[in-house]
Computed example of a mutant assay.
Amino acid sequence: MAASGKSSICIVGAGAIGGLLGVELSRQGHVVTFFARGAHLAAMQEAHALKLIKPDGTVVQSSADSVFTGSLANVPVQDVVVLGLKMHQIASVLPALPGIVGEHTVILTTQNGIPWWYFQEYNGPAEFRNRTVEAVDAGGALKTGIDSGKIIATVVYPAAHISRPGEVVHVEGVRFPVGEPSGATTERVTRVSGMLVAAGFKAPVLADVRGELWLKLWGTVAVNPLSALTHATLDELCTVDYSRAVVMSVMREVEAVAARLGSTMRVPIERRVDGAARVGRHRTSMLQDCEAGREMEVQTIMGAVVELAELCQVDIPCIRTVYGTVRMLAHVMRTQRVRICPIALDAAGK
């Protein structure tokens, strides 16, 4: 960190959440490099800015000294590296990470689901320590390629999406709680929390970041695949009685797996579901991927939970049913090279 208190920050994966973080951090004077690809990158480079539309409609953009790149090769060592990629995309940047990660660099992880580092720096049951979560890190490439001692985790609660290349819409939410995987309260996690708070987010330091990951995943395992399968929005899934029943059945099974691994949920199921319903007509990330024809985070969000349930010998019949069905959806999308999205009927019902 510079003497001014401002940091060099690289957003590795400047999509919806990475872009949201990057814009707001740059507006606090940090020097932010946005790493992206395709039309999104091209639009940012042309405008030399990433536009952010806030929940109240206010439009802001990244600072004038921001950098936009499709290659990490020429990016210098950073104070903070925000891994904004989805879990299955991280392996593609592993060879380039050593060039931007130095002795004192912090790696802030933002991924949904059970992370590859879950059993590293782990204080839960000794029988599980240092295991590889194969569903999200087959062969342990991420586990061996990313120093777990540099990781600070954040649990992402805001909803955001890319409305068009070069433009991110922040729908709602400002919570990015952070924590050391070891549970320690360190100078660096306090510093990262302070950076996020100064940028307008709520970022308390957690003593049990895995517990918070489970709290987020608790609902995600239920609503993300069901939204992709049904094209229902978050409020519909959590309020229509028959879908709400499935959501709650999945959540009870997730809770049982988390408990076996030493984590307990700090709110009742009903309160968690009601909170999700209040988000409104939000299309989950898996639904957005389904409709855009992108690879869905099936293994990250569901496969890892199935793997951990098997490890813990916890019965999860409802999760297995939803998991098998959404895997079939992903298979159809991949083999037929299609995106699956609703087509509105006209007034005649055609």
Rank of each mutant, 00 (worst) to 15 (best):
S63W: 08
V257L: 08
Q111K: 09
Q299T: 05
T239H: 05
F176P: 10
S249G: 13
G293I: 03
L311S: 00
L237S: 08
K216H: 03
T132I: 15
Y157C: 11
P177T: 02
T335S: 15
G303Q: 05
D241C: 10
R191Y: 11
P317R: 08
P181L: 08
I340Y: 12
R327Q: 09
V306Y: 04
Q313D: 13
Q61R: 15
T264F: 11
R266S: 15
Q61S: 14
E270R: 09
Q313T: 13
L85F: 09
D346G: 06
A135T: 14
A3P: 05
L20G: 01
N123G: 14
K54V: 07
A96H: 08
N74Q: 12
E253Y: 03
A49Q: 05
M1S: 13
G18H: 06
I114N: 10
A138D: 02
L41I: 02
R131Y: 10
I114A: 10
A49D: 02
T33D: 03
T185R: 15
R37T: 06
A203R: 00
G200S: 09
L226F: 06
W218N: 11
T186R: 10
N112M: 04
V75P: 03
G149N: 14
A344F: 11
L25Q: 01
G303M: 02
V67P: 07
P98E: 11
G38R: 12
M265L: 13
W116L: 03
T185Y: 15
A96W: 06
D208T: 06
A198D: 04
L287Q: 14
H40Q: 06
R266E: 14
T321H: 13
V80N: 02
Y122P: 00
I107Y: 05
V80Y: 04
H88E: 08
G219V: 01
G22I: 03
T105V: 06
V75L: 02
M296E: 12
L329W: 03
R320I: 08
K202L: 10
V221D: 01
C290R: 08
T105W: 05
A43S: 13
P95A: 01
V168Q: 03
L287M: 15
G200T: 03
R294C: 04
A259F: 07
I107T: 05
F201C: 04
Q111M: 15
D65E: 12
S4M: 00
E103Y: 11
R272A: 13
L196N: 01
L108G: 00
V59W: 11
